Computed example of a mutant assay.
Amino acid sequence: MAGSKGETRFYPYLPQNPKDPCTKAYKAYVAAGGHSAYATTPYSRVRSLYIICGSRLNAPSQQAAEELALKSCQATRNSYRVTTGGGCEIAASK
């Protein structure tokens, strides 16, 4: 599974800056060898001011990875209290 993008539900928007936390999280997700998931808020140029993301690497199962990635994304979204184009969704999992 390492190096695989897994099951992609939608292609996440990734900022061009390689030091951006969401870009780093997605690259770590792709490089992970076990069950992993990447969650993010949907990107809309009109409504999204921020991109919030979360991931879980090497979880015991794909379902657990998805649940924990969603929790991570939602916790980040709640802590920053920002307006985005929507709630957190699983973008990819394996």
Rank of each mutant, 00 (worst) to 15 (best):
Arg45Trp: 14
His35Asn: 15
Thr83Val: 12
Leu68Asp: 13
Ser55Gly: 06
Ile51Ser: 04
Arg77His: 14
Ala37Val: 03
Ala59Leu: 08
Thr76Gly: 15
Cys88Gly: 08
Asn78Lys: 15
Glu89Asn: 14
Gln74Cys: 01
Gly33Ser: 14
Ala64Gln: 15
Arg56Thr: 06
Ala37Ser: 12
Tyr29Ala: 04
Arg45Asp: 11
Glu89Tyr: 14
Asn78Ala: 15
Lys71Asp: 15
Ala31Cys: 03
Cys53Val: 05
Ser72Phe: 01
Val30Glu: 08
Ala65His: 03
Tyr38Glu: 00
Gly33Pro: 05
His35Gly: 01
Gly86Cys: 00
Thr83Gly: 08
Cys88Gln: 06
Ala59Gly: 07
Arg45Gln: 12
Thr84Ile: 04
Thr40Glu: 09
Lys71Trp: 02
Gly33Asn: 15
Glu67Thr: 09
Gln62Gly: 10
Thr40Pro: 00
Ile52Cys: 05
Asn58Phe: 03
Arg45Ser: 14
Val46Gln: 11
Ala39Pro: 01
Ala64Pro: 01
Ser72Val: 01
Gln62Tyr: 05
Ala39Tyr: 02
Ala39Thr: 08
Ala65Phe: 03
Arg45His: 09
Leu68Tyr: 01
Ser72Ala: 15
Cys53Ile: 01
Ser79Asn: 14
Ile52Gly: 04
Arg56Asp: 03
Gly34Asn: 10
Ala37His: 09
Cys53Thr: 03
Ser61Glu: 11
Ser55Tyr: 13
Tyr80Leu: 10
Tyr43Ile: 02
Pro42Asn: 05
Thr83Asp: 10
Gly54Ala: 06
Ser44Thr: 03
Leu57Cys: 02
Asn58Ala: 04
Ala69Lys: 06
Glu66Ser: 11
Glu66His: 02
His35Tyr: 15
Leu70Asn: 06
Thr76Trp: 07
Arg47His: 06
Ile90Cys: 13
Ala31Val: 02
Lys71Pro: 00
Ala31Asp: 12
Ala69Leu: 05
Ala32Pro: 07
Asn78Leu: 12
Ser55Phe: 09
Gln62His: 07
Gly54Asn: 08
Tyr50Gln: 10
Pro42Phe: 00
Tyr43Gln: 09
Gly34Lys: 07
Gln63Tyr: 14
Ser48Tyr: 01
Ser48Ala: 13
Leu49Asn: 13
Asn78Gly: 14
Leu57Tyr: 07
Gln74Thr: 15
Glu67Gly: 15
Lys71Val: 10
Cys88Ala: 06
Thr40Lys: 02
Gly34His: 01
Ala69Trp: 04
Leu57Val: 03
Ala75His: 03
Arg45Val: 10
Tyr80Cys: 03
Ser48Ile: 00
Arg77Gly: 05
Thr76Cys: 13
Pro60Ile: 06
Gly87Thr: 12
Ile52His: 03
Thr41Gln: 04
Thr76Leu: 13
His35Cys: 12
Tyr43Thr: 03
Val30Gln: 07
Glu66Asn: 13
Ser48Asp: 13
Ser36Gln: 11
Thr84Cys: 11
Thr40Ser: 14
Tyr50Ser: 06
Glu89Asp: 10
Ala69Cys: 08
Glu67Tyr: 09
Gln63Lys: 15
Ala39Asn: 11
Thr83Leu: 10
Ser48Gly: 05
Ser61Gln: 00
Cys53Ser: 08
Leu57Asn: 03
Val30Cys: 04
Thr83Trp: 07
Tyr29Ile: 04
Cys73Trp: 11
Tyr50Phe: 13
Leu68Pro: 01
Ala37Thr: 05
Tyr43Asp: 07
Ala32Ile: 04
